[in-house]
Design a protein around this nucleic acid. Structure first.
Length: 204
DNA sequence: GCGACAG
DNA sequence: ATCTTGTCGC
Protein backbone atom coordinates (compact mmCIF):
# COMPACT_ATOMS: atom_id res chain seq x y z
CA UNK A 1 0.00 0.00 0.00
CA UNK A 2 1.68 3.15 -1.14
CA UNK A 3 1.31 6.67 0.16
CA UNK A 4 -0.21 7.51 -3.19
CA UNK A 5 -2.82 4.80 -2.98
CA UNK A 6 -3.77 6.01 0.49
CA UNK A 7 -4.09 9.57 -0.80
CA UNK A 8 -6.35 8.43 -3.61
CA UNK A 9 -8.55 6.56 -1.16
CA UNK A 10 -8.71 9.61 1.09
CA UNK A 11 -9.82 11.74 -1.84
CA UNK A 12 -12.52 9.24 -2.75
CA UNK A 13 -13.66 9.22 0.85
CA UNK A 14 -13.73 13.01 1.16
CA UNK A 15 -15.33 13.83 -2.19
CA UNK A 16 -18.88 12.96 -1.00
CA UNK A 17 -18.38 15.10 2.10
CA UNK A 18 -17.65 18.28 0.16
CA UNK A 19 -20.49 20.77 0.57
CA UNK A 20 -21.33 22.42 -2.74
CA UNK A 21 -24.03 24.70 -1.41
CA UNK A 22 -23.60 28.11 0.16
CA UNK A 23 -22.92 27.70 3.86
CA UNK A 24 -21.42 31.08 4.51
CA UNK A 25 -22.11 34.27 6.38
CA UNK A 26 -21.17 37.72 5.21
CA UNK A 27 -17.72 37.63 3.61
CA UNK A 28 -15.69 40.43 5.15
CA UNK A 29 -12.22 38.90 5.11
CA UNK A 30 -10.63 36.53 2.59
CA UNK A 31 -7.45 34.52 2.99
CA UNK A 32 -5.32 33.47 0.03
CA UNK A 33 -2.69 30.76 0.30
CA UNK A 34 0.05 29.69 -2.10
CA UNK A 35 3.29 27.70 -2.02
CA UNK A 36 6.47 27.97 -4.10
CA UNK A 37 9.58 25.81 -4.01
CA UNK A 38 13.35 26.07 -3.92
CA UNK A 39 15.37 22.88 -3.71
CA UNK A 40 13.74 20.79 -0.95
CA UNK A 41 12.10 23.72 0.73
CA UNK A 42 8.51 24.87 0.42
CA UNK A 43 7.83 28.55 0.94
CA UNK A 44 4.19 29.00 1.94
CA UNK A 45 2.45 32.33 2.16
CA UNK A 46 -0.98 33.25 3.51
CA UNK A 47 -2.54 36.67 3.13
CA UNK A 48 -5.77 37.98 4.64
CA UNK A 49 -7.39 40.95 2.93
CA UNK A 50 -10.53 43.00 3.41
CA UNK A 51 -13.08 41.75 0.89
CA UNK A 52 -14.38 45.28 0.31
CA UNK A 53 -11.24 47.41 0.10
CA UNK A 54 -8.89 44.57 -0.94
CA UNK A 55 -6.37 45.97 1.52
CA UNK A 56 -4.03 43.61 3.36
CA UNK A 57 -4.99 42.90 6.97
CA UNK A 58 -2.36 40.32 7.82
CA UNK A 59 0.17 38.16 6.03
CA UNK A 60 2.65 35.47 6.97
CA UNK A 61 5.43 33.42 5.40
CA UNK A 62 6.57 29.94 6.37
CA UNK A 63 9.51 27.78 5.22
CA UNK A 64 8.98 24.02 5.38
CA UNK A 65 11.08 21.03 4.31
CA UNK A 66 9.32 18.89 1.70
CA UNK A 67 10.29 15.55 0.22
CA UNK A 68 7.07 14.59 -1.54
CA UNK A 69 7.29 15.13 -5.29
CA UNK A 70 4.52 16.74 -7.28
CA UNK A 71 2.18 14.17 -8.79
CA UNK A 72 -0.74 15.33 -10.96
CA UNK A 73 -3.97 14.84 -9.03
CA UNK A 74 -2.22 14.39 -5.71
CA UNK A 75 -0.99 17.90 -5.05
CA UNK A 76 -2.36 17.72 -1.52
CA UNK A 77 0.53 15.45 -0.59
CA UNK A 78 3.02 18.14 -1.47
CA UNK A 79 1.24 21.37 -0.61
CA UNK A 80 -1.23 20.77 2.22
CA UNK A 81 1.29 20.77 5.06
CA UNK A 82 3.05 24.00 4.05
CA UNK A 83 -0.29 25.67 3.31
CA UNK A 84 -1.85 24.66 6.63
CA UNK A 85 1.29 25.73 8.47
CA UNK A 86 1.10 29.22 7.00
CA UNK A 87 -2.62 29.54 7.66
CA UNK A 88 -2.20 28.54 11.30
CA UNK A 89 0.66 30.99 11.69
CA UNK A 90 -1.70 33.81 10.81
CA UNK A 91 -3.36 33.29 14.17
CA UNK A 92 -6.31 35.21 12.83
CA UNK A 93 -9.68 34.10 11.53
CA UNK A 94 -11.19 34.84 8.12
CA UNK A 95 -14.47 34.18 6.32
CA UNK A 96 -13.33 32.59 3.06
CA UNK A 97 -10.27 30.76 1.80
CA UNK A 98 -8.86 30.97 -1.73
CA UNK A 99 -6.50 28.17 -2.70
CA UNK A 100 -4.01 28.05 -5.56
CA UNK A 101 -5.22 24.78 -7.04
CA UNK A 102 -8.42 22.97 -7.91
CA UNK A 103 -11.41 22.14 -5.76
CA UNK A 104 -13.97 19.80 -7.29
CA UNK A 105 -12.48 20.28 -10.76
CA UNK A 106 -10.39 17.18 -10.15
CA UNK A 107 -10.28 13.54 -11.36
CA UNK A 108 -11.81 12.38 -8.07
CA UNK A 109 -13.70 15.61 -7.37
CA UNK A 110 -11.40 16.31 -4.45
CA UNK A 111 -8.56 18.67 -5.20
CA UNK A 112 -6.35 20.51 -2.72
CA UNK A 113 -9.00 23.19 -2.11
CA UNK A 114 -11.57 20.58 -1.03
CA UNK A 115 -9.07 18.96 1.30
CA UNK A 116 -8.09 22.22 2.98
CA UNK A 117 -11.71 23.35 3.15
CA UNK A 118 -12.79 20.20 4.94
CA UNK A 119 -9.78 20.19 7.29
CA UNK A 120 -10.36 23.82 8.24
CA UNK A 121 -14.16 23.59 7.95
CA UNK A 122 -14.18 26.87 6.01
CA UNK A 123 -15.91 28.11 2.88
CA UNK A 124 -13.20 27.53 0.26
CA UNK A 125 -12.68 28.23 -3.43
CA UNK A 126 -10.15 26.50 -5.68
CA UNK A 127 -8.39 28.59 -8.33
CA UNK A 128 -6.21 26.89 -10.95
CA UNK A 129 -4.12 28.78 -13.50
CA UNK A 130 -4.19 25.90 -15.95
CA UNK A 131 -6.45 22.95 -16.67
CA UNK A 132 -5.88 19.63 -14.93
CA UNK A 133 -8.68 17.88 -16.73
CA UNK A 134 -12.08 18.32 -18.33
CA UNK A 135 -13.44 19.97 -21.42
CA UNK A 136 -14.09 23.65 -21.85
CA UNK A 137 -17.63 24.49 -22.92
CA UNK A 138 -18.32 28.19 -23.13
CA UNK A 139 -17.38 29.56 -19.72
CA UNK A 140 -17.66 26.22 -17.97
CA UNK A 141 -15.42 23.21 -17.54
CA UNK A 142 -17.12 19.86 -17.81
CA UNK A 143 -15.64 16.72 -16.31
CA UNK A 144 -17.46 13.40 -16.36
CA UNK A 145 -20.59 14.94 -17.86
CA UNK A 146 -20.80 17.33 -14.96
CA UNK A 147 -20.04 21.03 -14.71
CA UNK A 148 -17.33 21.17 -12.09
CA UNK A 149 -15.67 24.45 -12.88
CA UNK A 150 -16.14 27.97 -14.17
CA UNK A 151 -13.82 30.25 -16.10
CA UNK A 152 -12.91 33.86 -15.48
CA UNK A 153 -10.78 35.56 -18.09
CA UNK A 154 -8.75 38.68 -17.40
CA UNK A 155 -5.95 40.23 -19.42
CA UNK A 156 -6.40 37.50 -22.01
CA UNK A 157 -5.61 34.80 -19.46
CA UNK A 158 -7.99 32.35 -17.83
CA UNK A 159 -8.35 31.05 -14.31
CA UNK A 160 -10.36 27.92 -13.57
CA UNK A 161 -12.66 28.29 -10.57
CA UNK A 162 -14.22 25.40 -8.66
CA UNK A 163 -15.91 24.66 -5.36
CA UNK A 164 -13.60 23.90 -2.49
CA UNK A 165 -16.13 23.60 0.31
CA UNK A 166 -19.27 25.21 1.73
CA UNK A 167 -19.95 27.39 -1.30
CA UNK A 168 -21.76 27.02 -4.62
CA UNK A 169 -19.95 27.34 -7.94
CA UNK A 170 -22.17 30.29 -8.80
CA UNK A 171 -21.27 32.18 -5.63
CA UNK A 172 -17.61 31.17 -5.95
CA UNK A 173 -17.47 32.73 -9.41
CA UNK A 174 -19.23 35.88 -8.27
CA UNK A 175 -16.97 36.43 -5.27
CA UNK A 176 -13.77 35.50 -7.12
CA UNK A 177 -14.60 38.03 -9.81
CA UNK A 178 -15.13 40.73 -7.20
CA UNK A 179 -11.67 40.09 -5.78
CA UNK A 180 -9.82 40.72 -9.03
CA UNK A 181 -8.40 44.24 -9.14
CA UNK A 182 -8.62 46.26 -12.31
CA UNK A 183 -5.72 45.40 -14.59
CA UNK A 184 -4.93 42.17 -12.74
CA UNK A 185 -5.29 38.52 -13.68
CA UNK A 186 -5.50 36.79 -10.31
CA UNK A 187 -7.83 37.64 -7.42
CA UNK A 188 -5.94 39.78 -4.87
CA UNK A 189 -5.58 37.20 -2.09
CA UNK A 190 -3.84 34.82 -4.48
CA UNK A 191 -1.85 37.43 -6.37
CA UNK A 192 -0.40 38.66 -3.09
CA UNK A 193 0.16 35.19 -1.64
CA UNK A 194 1.81 34.14 -4.90
CA UNK A 195 4.21 37.08 -4.75
CA UNK A 196 4.92 36.62 -1.06
CA UNK A 197 5.63 32.91 -1.46
CA UNK A 198 8.40 33.76 -3.92
CA UNK A 199 10.09 36.03 -1.40
CA UNK A 200 13.39 34.33 -0.59
CA UNK A 201 14.42 36.65 2.23
CA UNK A 202 15.45 34.74 5.36
CA UNK A 203 12.53 34.03 7.63
CA UNK A 204 13.14 34.90 11.24
C1' DG B 1 0.06 0.82 -25.05
C1' DC B 2 -0.14 6.15 -25.67
C1' DG B 3 -0.89 10.79 -24.24
C1' DA B 4 -2.25 14.21 -20.59
C1' DC B 5 -1.16 15.97 -16.33
C1' DA B 6 -3.28 21.80 -10.57
C1' DG B 7 1.95 23.23 -8.68
C1' DA C 1 6.72 24.93 -9.49
C1' DT C 2 11.67 25.92 -11.37
C1' DC C 3 15.59 26.40 -14.75
C1' DT C 4 16.86 31.24 -17.57
C1' DT C 5 18.40 36.19 -21.82
C1' DG C 6 16.81 38.70 -24.43
C1' DT C 7 12.94 40.62 -26.26
C1' DC C 8 8.12 42.15 -27.64
C1' DG C 9 4.58 45.32 -26.14
C1' DC C 10 2.00 48.94 -23.46
Amino acid sequence: MTRYTDAVKLQEKLAPIVITKDKLNKIQTVCGVDVSYKNNDAYAAAVIIDAKTLEVIKQVRKKIKVKTPYVPGLMMLRESKPALSAIKSLKQDFDLLLVDGNGRLHPRKCGLACYLGIILDKPTIGIAKSLLGGKISGSSVILYDEILGGIIEKKGKKIFVSVGHKISLKTALKITGSLVKEGQWLPEPLRLADRLSKDRTEIS
